[in-house]
């Protein structure tokens, strides 16, 4: 069983790929995950807690099922149990995720569709947020808007960037590929969410508009971190 710590690390790495859609940061970085255990028989159990008792159940369900799927993808995993703690819909969400239910079946009568459209909406927001950050970084390191509006994904991937630039590019390309699974590396690297080409003359106002997404996620992130810290302090106090 010498490889247990390594497997635990693998689970943590898998959780790094699962984001809170409203913040566009990983559930691990946000410290939502309070416990990860891997048994000797390769059963994985994960507990997580959100910043409030009231966090929207659809986003909670999304994060829980994404965690389950990200961990299940590793072939050594025998089973995964995900447990959301201290939430008004915890029972429904935990049962639904364990049974691999569709969101519609987990919340009967309270939905009119599955989570596909809200997922797509927030993937679009992540795409815009990451694009704005990358374009601003590239502008700041001497690249022209005109050139950016013309390059394809392969050229973007071949670009030599510093550590920060590389990080932003990786995040952006991840969203780009998810949003356009049918596109190839010959497609334009920078297009609007609508698919339209960027007009380099309009770049400042375009960035200003899509910058709204970043300001939102920043608000969500700082509120969530602050509420979660208070909540943890409260729970620690209650246990003493």
């Amino acid at each position: 069983m010498t490889n247990l710590p390594y497997r635990w690390e693998q689970v943590r790495a898998a959780l790094d790929t699962v984001t809170d859609p409203e913040i566009d940061e990983s559930v691990a970085a946000l410290e939502f995950v309070s416990c990860v255990e891997v048994s000797e028989d390769n059963d994985v159990s994960i507990e997580f807690r959100l910043p409030t008792f009231w966090c929207a159940p659809n986003f909670a369900f999304m994060m829980a099922s994404d965690m389950r799927d990200a961990v299940r993808e590793m072939d050594w995993v025998r089973s995964v149990s995900i447990k959301l703690l201290d939430h008004f819909s915890a029972d429904l969400i935990n049962r639904g995720v364990a049974l691999k239910q569709d969101f519609r079946d987990a919340f009967p009568g309270e939905t009119d569709d599955d989570l596909a459209s809200v997922r797509l909406k927030f993937l679009g927001k992540a795409f815009e947020r990451r694009q704005e950050l990358l374009i601003r970084h590239l502008l700041g390191t001497g690249h022209e808007g005109e050139w950016m509006s013309q390059i394809n994904l392969r050229e973007l991937m071949g670009l030599s960037l510093n550590y920060e630039g590389t990080r932003l590019r990786t995040l952006y390309i991840f969203a780009w590929r998810r949003l356009h699974p049918e596109w190839s590396e010959a497609n334009l690297a920078f297009v609007a969410l609508s698919g339209d080409r960027l007009d380099p003359g309009q770049l400042p106002s375009y960035l200003r508009k899509i910058g709204g997404v970043r300001r939102n996620t920043e608000y969500n992130g700082l509120i969530c971190r602050s509420l979660l810290a208070e909540r943890k302090a409260e729970l620690a106090g209650a246990r003493e």
């Binding site: 409030t52 009231w54 966090c55 929207a56 159940p57 659809n58 986003f59 969101f103 519609r104 919340f107 309270e110 939905t111 009119d112 569709d113 599955d114 989570l115 459209s117 809200v118 909406k121 927030f122």
Partner: peptide, 13 residues
């Protein structure tokens, strides 16, 4: 705007 609106599958806010 609070955090839960129906139908639950939409953006809650």
């Amino acid at each position: 705007k609070g955090p839960t609106i129906l139908p639950l599958n939409r953006d809650a806010f």
